[in-house]
Amino acid sequence: MRRIANGNLVLVSAAACVVWIAVWAWITRSGGPVSSLFLPSPGDVVERFGRMWVKPYIGSTLLGHVFSSLSIVLAGWALGGIVGVPLGVAMAWWPRVKWLVFPIFQLIRPVPPLAWIPLTLVWMGIGEPARIFVVFIAALVPWLMNSMQAVGSVDPLLIDAGRTLGASDGKILTRIVCRTALPTLIAGARIALGNAWTTLVAAELLAATAGLGYVALNASRMLDTDVLVVAMLLIGLLGVLLSLLMKLATHVLAPWSLSQQKG
């Protein structure tokens, strides 16, 4: 920001990356100050990463675990949208629905989604439905809140204008409300997906027989630190990818929102 030009800062960052990895490699070298049981060396992590693609680790290959995690996240997230968006829109459109549903919602909201895990385990047992349910609860809140806000923030003048020009209620909803509300809705979808991913990892620590969280916990119990670090980095990487995908979706579905935000 000050004094040093931006280009130089990128160089400093790149150099820093190299230095950090070198430090990591140096402290974890065989006979180094940090034991590989505590933190594996970068070489071990890369090697293990390569091996896990082909050789199954607790049940399936790395790709299998990734698919297991992703399919549950997407299922829970989509379910959250299917329930949350119509409910949120209805709550913003008809005050009575809001008055009825909101108190129940407020009652449930302070409870972290994770606290539901033991309850879902009792109700559904260890399996995909339990994990999907927990992810669903984590995703539902942003879906619902943002769709409610999205519809609520539509300029009443536009609605009045539409009505004056003879549009029906249904047409106003699809042609005016939905279009103005789309950016907020997509933002909600993005937050929901982030929440879903975070929560899934926790659910996999407790109630899973596959998935990256499950791999991480097992690796910790078997002292396979290299596997553990592979799983952690992959969880982070997939989180970034999901968030990038949602940003792309904003560009494609509601490009006008981007210029709006800047202005």
């Binding site: 505590f38 991480a216 990487l237 989180g239």
Partner: peptide
């Protein structure tokens, strides 16, 4: 970008 819960296994180890 690594969610807090993904740190639980390594925290147990440490």
């Amino acid at each position: 970008y690594i969610p807090p819960f993904a740190w639980v296994p390594i925290a147990i180890l440490w």
